[in-house]
Every structure is written in structure tokens, then in C-alpha cells.
Amino acid sequence: MNRDYLGEFEELILLTVAFMDGAAYGAAIHQDIRQRTGRSVQLSAVHIALYRLEEKKLVTSEIGGATAQRGGRRKRFFTITHEGRHILSEIRQVREQLWQLIPKMI
């Protein structure tokens, strides 16, 4: 699983997409990250990350229906792919292993 390297921010986004389960789109992710981490990120950063993830085939996207809320503009919903889940769990495994190797200092 060396094919794709995931940055920290990308990982964060991918996780958010994963838990939102089909309801993930730019603004929602942006808002969630802010609330959860207190980080104020650029919306452009969110979008760029999403597109990169899509290029890496870790997420797929679908244009949703029109809503009255945002001037009738449609949303692009992102869902995590099988590879996406796979890479997340791989990362998680690596981390778990590493955590267990740390002497119980913390």
C-alpha cells in the first residue's frame, strides 16, 4: 500500500467523508472540520483535497439535486470508495501498531 501517500489534511477530509456517509460536500466538510478541530481552513483547500482524493480514486462524487437554499445551485456529494476505506484502515493499523510500541509514558 505504498501507491498513495495521504497527507494529514487529506486524511482528515477522507475521514470526514467516510463518516458523513454520502452526505459529504464542500461546505458541510468545511463546517465540520472547523467545529471539530477549531481550525479555520480555506474552502479552496477543502475542494482541492477532495479533487485530489477523487483523482486517487479514494472518493467518488455525484452531482446532487438542486436545492432552494443556495441559490438553486447543486451540490457535489462525495462518497468514500472501497480503496478509500482500505487506505484508512491501513493507516489506522499502522498507527495502532505504533501506539502499542510506545512505552506507557503518556
Partner: peptide, 14 residues
């Protein structure tokens, strides 16, 4: 254009 403007408008309201 559409999706990003939509996202930004939504955030703006918030």
C-alpha cells in the same frame, strides 16, 4: 463554478 459557489454561499449564510 456551480458547486463551489454553492458551497461558499451556504457557508456565507452560516
Amino acid at each position: 463554478s456551480e458547486e463551489i459557489q454553492g458551497d461558499l454561499d451556504e457557508l456565507f449564510d452560516l
